[in-house]
């Protein structure tokens, strides 16, 4: 099998693996759905963090924006969940286009902290300022207002599971394509040596802006899917105290890689799911694991796995060459 074929198979393999797990452990369907949705969210952060080198403590606000734009649409304006997803994507594009030029001018801790502040403002907005629309901490319910979608009624959790898998598969394929394209190389090159990119004739501001828009769209898409899955949304989703979680998941999986977010989501949510049964403060283990990853395996789960694979392939080739 050529490297190219093997790479094309991976998105199908990973989503297929999730579907298989659902049949092996039917009781874990909600958890597996969450893995798919969280992967999309981590993928967004991975563009910022892994590809462009921005640490954002404001990602929950974009997730929350997606969730609330879908929820508000379904609660007040329309009934079709697919349209609600489209509304959330458009919201992501709009926010990315409008906020991007302001935020991506900032570097390092300034970007991190301004995003954190933006996250706090977002939380205050849905909790207090727009309480008439969002119902504040009581949350916004809309499950009964949703109408059946054609072909697959995604109001049903079982159907929603397959819908989430389909979305994940499509995003996997697009994400991989982006990684292999000039755009992916441009993202990484801008992070590595922005001046050299400018010497080559690239407007690196636009590259960073585009990365920000893509990251925001992935977060709002994930947010809208979360909202539709639960039929309800509340301000907890955009809590700024949860901002570090997505960064940790990105690190655990392997930042700057295509499939790192998938493994980051599995590892992070897996620890939360399993360990929280015995230890209330499950974050303790995540903290320890993050330290180990940062010091010992800074390429994360997927990065370390691919490194080992390359190394063993190299050793095999060497052994074949040696008479």
């Amino acid at each position: 099998m050529t490297k190219r074929t093997y790479e094309w198979i991976l998105p199908f393999l990973f989503t297929g693996g999730l579907i298989l797990t659902r049949y092996l452990f039917p009781a874990k369907m909600t958890f597996i759905t969450e893995v798919a949705l969280y992967t999309l969210y981590v993928m967004g952060n991975n563009i910022l963090f892994g590809y462009l080198g921005y640490v954002s403590f404001g990602q929950p606000v974009y997730l929350s924006m997606g969730a609330y734009s879908a929820a508000i649409y379904l609660a007040y304006l329309g009934r079709n969940p697919l349209t609600a997803i489209l509304v959330a994507i458009l919201m992501g594009i709009l926010v990315g286009i409008l906020m991007g030029p302001v935020l991506i001018r900032l570097r390092g801790s300034y970007f991190t902290l301004v995003n954190a502040a933006f996250c706090a403002i977002g939380l205050f907005t849905v909790e207090r300022l727009l309480i008439g629309i969002t119902r504040g901490n009581d949350g916004l319910w809309f499950r009964t207002r949703m109408v059946a979608t054609p072909l697959l009624d995604i109001r049903q959790p079982k159907n929603f599971f397959f819908f989430a898998m389909l979305v994940l598969l499509v995003i996997f394929i697009l994400y991989r394509r982006m990684d292999r394209s000039v755009l992916g190389a441009a993202f990484k090159a801008t992070q590595g040596n922005e001046r050299r990119m400018q010497f080559l004739g690239y407007d690196t501001f636009k590259i960073r802006w585009l990365g920000f828009v893509l990251a925001t769209v992935l977060s709002t898409l994930a947010g809208s899917l979360y909202a539709i899955n639960f039929g309800f949304v509340n301000p907890n989703l955009g809590e700024n105290s949860r901002a570090a979680e997505v960064i940790v998941a990105t690190l655990l999986g392997g930042s700057g890689t295509v499939y790192g977010p998938f493994f980051g989501a599995i590892t992070f949510l897996g620890i939360k799911e399993i360990v929280s049964q015995w230890i209330t403060r499950w974050e303790l283990l995540v903290g320890v694991l993050t330290i180990i990853v940062l010091f010992k395996f800074n390429r994360g789960v997927w990065g370390t796995f691919t490194d080992l694979l390359h190394r063993s392939r190299k050793t095999m080739l060497m052994q074949r060459k040696t008479p």
């Binding site: 990484k188 090159a189 590595g192 040596n193 001046r195 050299r196 010497f199 080559l200 004739g201 690196t204």
Partner: peptide
């Protein structure tokens, strides 16, 4: 902007010999 100057046909090869190492 530097990218505008580069696209107009004036290229600069910096002394640091930094290429995009990961690529």
């Amino acid at each position: 902007f530097p990218f505008e100057i580069a696209l107009s046909g004036l290229k600069y090869v910096h002394q640091d010999k930094q290429v995009f190492s990961d690529l």
